[in-house]
Amino acid sequence: MANISELIERYIKNLLQESQGDSVELQRNELAAQFKCVPSQINYVLSTRFNTENGFIVESRRGGGGFIRIVKIPLEQHGDPAVQIYRLVGEEINQSQAENIIKRLAEEELITLREAQIFRAVVDRNSLRLELPWRDSLRANLLRVMLAAVFRES
């Protein structure tokens, strides 16, 4: 059974798919009531699963008429996806950030599911047996090299 964070994430992504545009507006309290959780659980899902690494912008307005607007940003709309991902990776990247980028690439169908599995295995901390910050630096370098190889073929 999926945990509450996964259920909330799936629900929001389904709303985004069904929406006419690339955004959806939600009420944090209504969403919390629907999933029988505290509003901070909604905040957690938004900050960990709907961030820029995952291709989203979250806007919120607090107060009585407050809302949360989640905007999906497809890579293709903003220039070369390879350049965008290269910038996201940077000179150092931790495992969680790398996995988010890999997940996004697979969701956007810029890499195959098999490529995503290979990418995850390569950037995993168990594969990179180095101390920090060397591990995050090597992970970023490996990810950039793999991405360059994939995008060069396209």
Rank of each mutant, 00 (worst) to 15 (best):
N54C: 06
R61A: 09
L138D: 06
E25D: 00
E18V: 01
F56A: 01
K36R: 15
I93W: 04
E53C: 10
E53T: 01
A121I: 00
D124C: 00
E6F: 07
L113I: 13
F50H: 11
A82Q: 13
Y44W: 13
R62Q: 11
S47I: 03
D136L: 01
G63V: 07
S154P: 01
L138H: 08
A32S: 10
N100H: 07
T52D: 12
A148L: 13
K103D: 14
I73V: 13
I12E: 05
N100D: 11
V38I: 07
P39Q: 08
G79T: 11
P133E: 15
K13H: 12
E30W: 10
G21I: 04
I42A: 05
A116C: 00
Y86E: 12
G21R: 09
N29R: 15
R49A: 00
V24K: 07
E108F: 10
A82D: 06
A149W: 08
I70T: 05
S47E: 11
Q20V: 07
D22W: 09
Q41R: 15
E9W: 01
F35D: 12
K13Q: 14
A82L: 13
D124P: 00
G79E: 08
G65Q: 13
A149Q: 13
L142A: 12
K103W: 02
R69H: 00
I111L: 05
E18G: 01
P81D: 10
L75A: 07
L147C: 09
I111P: 07
S96D: 10
T48A: 10
R114W: 04
L113C: 07
L31G: 05
E25N: 00
S19F: 05
A98T: 03
G79Q: 12
I42F: 01
A148I: 13
Y11F: 15
K72I: 00
V24D: 06
L147A: 01
